[in-house]
Design a protein around this nucleic acid. Structure first.
Ligand SMILES: [Mn+2]
Ligand SMILES: [Mn+2]
Ligand SMILES: [Mn+2]
Ligand SMILES: [Mn+2]
Lengths: 146, 146
DNA sequence: TTGGAAGTTTAGCATTTGCTAAATTATTTG
DNA sequence: CAAATAATTTAGCAAATGCTAAACTTCCAA
């Protein structure tokens, strides 16, 4: 009947936003880990589970388990008891993530919040910013003190 | 030794951002559910599991399970097989969430993205915006077409 | 008033993300 | 080189969030 159809269509439209958020959250962990592995490799030549655990504020065993999933996903390579390496897919994800993350952080700074707040808020916000919004932020930055 | 202390302190600083993100995500589900329950009550007099499931894009059983947790958390009241009511804590959370959500959405619009993008991106971003960033967004809105 | 549609709950399962404690391997130091 | 220390992995657990299928209750309409 007409009413049910209209109701269904409207709900379907609404639910799209929540589906996007759930998809963002599925990708989020991998993005943050891979970005941090790239940072560690650049800063000190290698990435180890302990450093990841320390920086993420989680237990070592949690990192180890996640490494297994990232390896299965083709983002990292790791021999038992050795340091972690990024695959080319991993490097691509890390660099895309860095660009996006840096842009969001700079945007928040330009908006007028403190360094600390920009650093903290951007860590969560970065994963929910669409290409269109990212572009709008870049445009804002270009106008205001980018 | 001095080096370990310095390294530990720096990692602790970094990990704070991730801890905030994890805390945000713990709160997120309750916030979205409660806000939607408030919307349904306002729009049609009552909130039922089926409508929540439709709008969230999840299965009915998922909503039912979440309702139990929200009841334990003191945010809703529900008799078996009846509609869902918000407690006063639930209403407070819903109204705070609405204000914040609406502000973020308006901010994105003012930044120049389309209605659709503002609607979708704000659904995720809203949960990671600190009080300070929210204030900065409000200030921006006051200057530009609020 | 009763039968069926619609809504709700339960049961049972899977995945992700976290934890602690114990076992194992690597590395450094005496 | 052997012992101590550090790092890593495994085992086993828990909570949150999702699913489908089956059972149960409510409500409307014939
Ligand atoms: Mn992040
Ligand atoms: Mn919301
Ligand atoms: Mn939301
Ligand atoms: Mn998020």
């Amino acid at each position: 009947m007409a009413f049910a159809t209209k109701k269904g269509a409207s709900a379907k439209l609404r639910s799209a936003a929540f589906k996007r958020v759930r998809a963002d959250h599925s990708a989020e962990l991998a993005e943050d880990y891979v970005e941090m592995i790239a940072d560690l490799i650049d800063e000190r030549g290698e990435a180890r589970c302990t450093d990841l655990a320390l920086r993420l504020g989680v237990a070592n065993a949690t990192v180890v388990k996640t490494m297994r999933r990232l390896q299965v996903a083709g983002l990292i390579n790791q021999e038992p008891y050795r340091a972690i390496f990024l695959t080319s897919d991993g490097w691509k994800m890390a660099e895309d993530g860095r660009r996006r993350h840096a842009l969001v952080e700079k945007f928040l700074l330009a908006l007028g919040v403190t360094r600390e707040t920009a650093r903290i808020d951007s860590e969560g916000i970065e994963h929910h910013v669409s290409a269109e919004t990212l572009k709008a932020m870049a445009k804002f930055l270009a106008r205001n003190g980018g």
